[in-house]
Structures are given as C-alpha cells and as structure tokens.
Measured scan of single mutants.
Amino acid sequence: MAAGGDHGSPDSYRSPLASRYASPEMCFVFSDRYKFRTWRQLWLWLAEAEQTLGLPITDEQIQEMKSNLENIDFKMAAEEEKRLRHDVMAHVHTFGHCCPKAAGIIHLGATSCYVGDNTDLIILRNALDLLLPKLARVISRLADFAKERASLPTLGFTHFQPAQLTTVGKRCCLWIQDLCMDLQNLKRVRDDLRFRGVKGTTGTQASFLQLFEGDDHKVEQLDKMVTEKAGFKRAFIITGQTYTRKVDIEVLSVLASLGASVHKICTDIRLLANLKEMEEPFEKQQIGSSAMPYKRNPMRSERCCSLARHLMTLVMDPLQTASVQWFERTLDDSANRRICLAEAFLTADTILNTLQNISEGLVVYPKVIERRIRQELPFMATENIIMAMVKAGGSRQDCHEKIRVLSQQAASVVKQEGGDNDLIERIQVDAYFSPIHSQLDHLLDPSSFTGRASQQVQRFLEEEVYPLLKPYESVMKVKAELCL
C-alpha cells in the first residue's frame, strides 16, 4: 500500500493539533497551500530580480507567473513527485505547466533550498508574528487579574506546605514575570531571523556568478533584492546548502521555554482548584465526569500541561538535527523538520489560546482563602504575639514557653481530632496574655502579614508589564474561544 493518505478522510490519521486544537490561522501558515504558494512567490521574486539585473526574462513571463501564483494543481504535483521522487522539481514542473512561456526560467540558477529553506524562514517569521500578540493578550488578562487582587491576602506555599502570606495578585505576578520573559525572547528570536537568500547549491553562489558572467556586484544585488522582497532586513552571508540548523534550535528553545512557563502556571491553577481557592472557567453544560456528576475538573489547565510537556520535548529534535548536518548538509534534517517545526508552533498556539481562555474567566473564592488563612495564621502570628507581650512588660522566655504549650495543644486538636485551630481562643482565655487581649485582632490582621506584596504588584505592572504590552494595544480586544 502506498504511503500517505487522504487526510480529510475519517479513515486516515490526522494530527489532533490540526484537527482538534490549533487555530485556523496557525494551521494555514503550515498548510501545503501556504507552503507551495510561497515557493511560487519566491520563484517570481527571483525572476523579477534577475530581470532587473539584466537576464533575458520578459515582462510577459513575469506576468504569467504572477497570474498563476494561486493556480496550484495539487493532484498534478503529487503525481509528479511520485514520478520524480523530488518535491521541488515536482512543483517546478507543475508551475511550468500553467506558465508555459515562463517554464524555462522558473528556478533559474537556484537549488531546492532556495524555495525550501527560504519558505521555512518566512513561515517561522509569520508563525512567530501570530504567537506574539496571543502571548501579549494572556499577559494582559493576567495583569488585569493581578491588579484587581493585588491586596487580597492568601496563604503562600513553599514545598506545598503553608508559608508566609502573600497576595493573590502577587502570586499571579510570578506567572506574568515568566511570560514577559517569554514574550521578550519570542520577539528577540523573531527579529534575529535572517533570510537564507540566493546562495546556490553549497552556499557559494557559483551558479549565479556564472549567470551574471562573473559580476560579483550583481550577485550581491540579486541576494539583497530577493531578501528585501521577502520582507527581511538581512540575509546570511555564510550558508551551506541550507541555512544553519542552529536557527531551528533557537526558535524551538524559546517555544519550549514558553511551554515550561505555561505548565507551571496551569499546575498552580490545578492545585488551587483542589484547594477550592480558584477555578478555571466551567461552562453551564460542561460535564466533569461521566460517573461523578459533582466533579469540576480543571480540564483546560490539564490540557495545557499535557501539550506543554510535548512542546518542551520537541527542542531535542533540532538539537540532534543540527549535530548531524555533515559538511554542507545531509538530508537527516528533512523529514524531522517537516514534523517538529509545525508541531512546535501548533502546540504553542494551542496552549496560548487555551491559557487566554482560562485567564479571561478565572474565578476566585475569597471566603475559602480566608478560612485557610484562619487555619494557619495563628501559628504564624506567634512571633508577633511574643513581641507584643514583651512590649507590655512580659518575659520573652516565659511567653515563648506559654505559646509553645498552647500551640501544641491547638495542633493536637487540628491533627488528632480534625478540629479547627483554636490557638487564639486559648490565648484569649489565658490570664497571662490579658495585657494584649485587646491587640489580638490587630495582630491577626492578614494584611499585616503580606509585606509589600501589593506595592510590588503595582510597581511591576507599571514599570515592566504595561510598557512591554504597549506595541500590542491594537490587538488586545480579541477574545479566545474554545470549541473543545
């Protein structure tokens, strides 16, 4: 049975990233139509530049190519590739079939990587351009969430054990800070992308030097003109047959890092959902379990974690691919890159769409948070109580021993009897502590235990987050809708 299948058929496997999760716009960027249309555009740009620099290419040939950029006979191309065992030459023939007058000058002087690699770089750039505003929107939604809850005390956790208090907004800023680093890295790697350009079979530009009869300047002009037509500021000066596969490492490393950030955020949300302090959106008709109707599973956060793990592992592909590119190139890269580049971007696209949807509907339960604080705060307040007693004339050592005994009794009630923490009640009825009984409410005010959390939130948002989001103001209103 021949390899390949009808990918629109229910009898043929289709990647869930495309069929179930990723956005239509990201799927289109990695589609065959987008790819092969870009090949034709690159052939047109090459012909236009070659004509401008004096090669015998007519206006009629150029116009014929322009008129057929979208006229792609995919069936013919597939048949040609089956016959020739070469995808680029299959599309040269297919393009030439609908451009008979231009057929002889299509791909003039070029090698397969002229269309293959340059198209990949265009796709990487455009895919990054799709991700950047999506990530900015996630940051914006979380920034709104953090600002609104900047002063809401909550129990902090280290080692997932109760620690000092923080605020809900401050905790959210930990998430935002990681995503801001990801946004900066995505922008950097996007701006650092260079075009492969017009380089020939081993990167020496020998074929173009021959076409222009040894004119170095025209060869350099050709490279520059096509690079500018493709919208790049610069091209690699040095290439082998391909652009260095280190570029793929750079791009997928940034995406993998984004995956790590999203995994951490969504894990926190899942843990908070278990504590009943916070939940992701839950639709009115949504079913959490087929057997347990009360369940409210954090399905979206779980999906993000599941896909983020996949995204983090994909960076190993370009690392290994770059390491086995012998001399000017081997074909070890080809099949692998067809999979890992598309999957990385479709996965990143999915987790950003999902995280935006989550961040637009996060639900906080202040009463649950308050109750958990009441359970733990008495123990945390013991040092403040000791200091207040010393100020009232008591002995630190005597007070410490009193607190120690009462704390152990209260802990026994919590752990052995399943009761509430009654340390404060014990202190309130103990005559030894009568000098500070009137101060206990103040000493137990949760806001006095959150330090500068709310001020940190305000400063972080104003100095770091809002300036970073400013270039994306025009796209901030787009909502994230999930079908599944």
Rank of each mutant, 00 (worst) to 15 (best):
D87H: 13
T94L: 10
K233T: 01
K402S: 04
G231N: 14
S359C: 01
C180V: 04
G200H: 03
A206S: 14
S412G: 12
H107M: 03
A291S: 13
L142K: 13
K218E: 01
T330D: 05
L193Y: 04
N384I: 08
A78F: 00
T154H: 03
E425F: 13
I62A: 04
S290Y: 08
E425L: 07
E481G: 12
E360H: 14
I386V: 10
A230I: 11
S323C: 15
L152R: 04
R270F: 01
D349R: 09
I72P: 01
S306G: 09
N68S: 02
Q320L: 04
F157T: 04
F28L: 03
A49P: 08
G169C: 02
T202Q: 02
T321K: 01
E148M: 05
E481T: 13
D216Y: 08
K75D: 03
S334F: 03
E279W: 14
T166E: 00
R171F: 10
S19T: 01
V254S: 09
T167I: 06
T313W: 07
Y365R: 15
R459E: 12
V254F: 11
D178I: 05
A291E: 11
L128A: 05
I72C: 03
E360I: 01
M278P: 06
R190L: 05
T227S: 05
T267V: 00
V219K: 06
A411F: 03
L121K: 02
F460T: 15
R149S: 03
A431K: 00
D73R: 02
Q409F: 12
I105R: 12
K402H: 11
A90Y: 13
A110C: 04
Y365S: 01
L132P: 12
T167W: 12
A47G: 07
Q221T: 05
R404W: 04
K276V: 06
Q428P: 00
L255Y: 07
Q210P: 06
T347C: 14
M181V: 04
S301Q: 13
S15G: 05
K35Q: 09
I265M: 14
D59Q: 07
Y21R: 08
A235V: 08
M299Q: 10
L108P: 12
L121G: 04
R125G: 14
R372S: 13
R234G: 07
L341F: 07
F232T: 02
S301P: 04
T239L: 14
N421M: 10
T350K: 07
R33V: 11
S31R: 04
K187E: 05
Y472F: 14
T201K: 07
P133Q: 08
L311Y: 01
G393C: 01
P293W: 03
D59L: 05
D87R: 03
R303W: 10
E425Y: 09
L469A: 12
Q285H: 00
C304E: 14
L131P: 07
I237E: 11
L84V: 10
L42I: 10
C340I: 07
H437I: 14
E463L: 13
P471M: 02
T154L: 05
S261T: 12
M26R: 02
G5H: 10
V413E: 15
A230C: 12
V465T: 11
T158Y: 02
L311T: 13
V465G: 03
R459G: 10
S67I: 09
E417G: 13
F28C: 13
V364G: 13
L209S: 01
K35S: 08
T244P: 01
D117Q: 03
Q63H: 14
A163V: 00
T154G: 08
L311H: 02
S290N: 08
D192E: 08
R337L: 10
E60K: 08
I351N: 00
L314W: 03
F157D: 01
S257E: 11
L211H: 09
A411L: 14
E462L: 01
L440N: 12
A77Q: 13
G8L: 10
G8V: 10
K224R: 01
C305Q: 01
G259K: 03
V324G: 04
A49Q: 01
S474D: 09
R426H: 15
F345T: 08
T313H: 13
Q241D: 03
C180R: 03
